[in-house]
Design a binder for these strands. Sequence first.
DNA 1: GTAATTCCTCTAGCCGCTATAGGAGCAAGC
DNA 2: GCTTGCTCCTATAGCGGCTAGAGGAATTAC
Lengths: 141, 141
Amino acid sequence: MRYDITIGEAARISGVKVPTIRYYEQIGLLPAPPRTEGNRRTYDDSDLRRLAFIRHARELGFEVSGIRTLLALQSDLTQSCGAADAVAREHLAEVEKRIASLTALKAELERMIEGCSHGRLAECKVIEVLADHGKCEHAHH
Amino acid sequence: MRYDITIGEAARISGVKVPTIRYYEQIGLLPAPPRTEGNRRTYDDSDLRRLAFIRHARELGFEVSGIRTLLALQSDLTQSCGAADAVAREHLAEVEKRIASLTALKAELERMIEGCSHGRLAECKVIEVLADHGKCEHAHH
DNA sequence: GTAATTCCTCTAGCCGCTATAGGAGCAAGC
DNA sequence: GCTTGCTCCTATAGCGGCTAGAGGAATTAC
C-alpha cells in the first residue's frame, strides 16, 4: 500500500492525464486529496481504483453524470443493483441507436464512393448525394 | 426562383435552425447574404441548396472542416473528384472504426447487464466490470 | 393602432477536456 | 551551494458545434 502517490504517478498508472485528474477533482468526480507541505496532491490506492473506474466507464462511453451515479452506487454496496443496471441498460440502448445510424451512414458513404466515376467532379456522386438529400436513404432523425 | 427568403423561412425549408444558420455565416460556412433596409438577411435558392448540403453532410457526421473542403470542391465542378472522394473515404474509415468500437462496447455492456444477478450490488457485474478493467475484453485504444 | 411575431446583435453556456502562461517546488549532478 | 531540468501549482482561455438568453428593432396580423 502506498499513500504518497503524486499526480504524475497516478496519471501514469491510471492512464488518465494529469490535467484531466485535476479536472475530475474540480467537477467533484474525484475527492480532493490531501496535500504535502509543498502543496502537492497525494493520492492513495483507493484514488487509483476510482480513477480506473472512471476511465473505464468513460472508455465505455458513459457520461460524467452517469459515472457520478455509478460511483454513488458503488459506495453503498449493500444497495440493490437495480439502479446500476438501469444506467447500464440506458447506455446500451443509446449505443445500439448509434450503431444503427452509423451502419446506415456507412452504407450511404459506400454507395457514394462506389458511384464516383473518378472522372470529372460534375459526375461525382459524393458531391451529388450530399447536395441532394432525396438521392439517399439516410434515416431522417 | 425567390431571392427574398427570410432566415426563418430558410430554417423551415432547410431544417437548419435560425441560430445555427447565423452561426454558419459567422464561421464562414455560408456567405453573408444581402440585407433588407431593415437589416434583415435575405437568402436565395443557392443559399438553400448550400444549407441543405451542409445539413446533410453534418447528418452524415462530416466535420465542419471536411464540409468546407467539400464546398470548395463543389464550387469548381471541372476539377477531378479525387479530393472529394478522399474526404469521403477518410470519413468512411472513421465511421467503420466507430462502429467496430461501439460493437465491442455493446457486447461488453450486454455481458455486464446479463451478469447482474439483480440481487445485492456487491455481486453486481456492472460495478465489478467497471471497477476492474482486467475483467473485460474492451479494446485498449 | 397595437399586439404578436420575427428579426437583430451580443454574450455566455454546454460537455469533456486540452493548452497556455507564469510561477513554485524538488531531485540530481557538479 | 548552485544550477539545470523536471514536476507540480493556479488560473484562464480555447476547442467543436452549437444553444440559450438578454434587450431591442422591425415587421406582420388583426
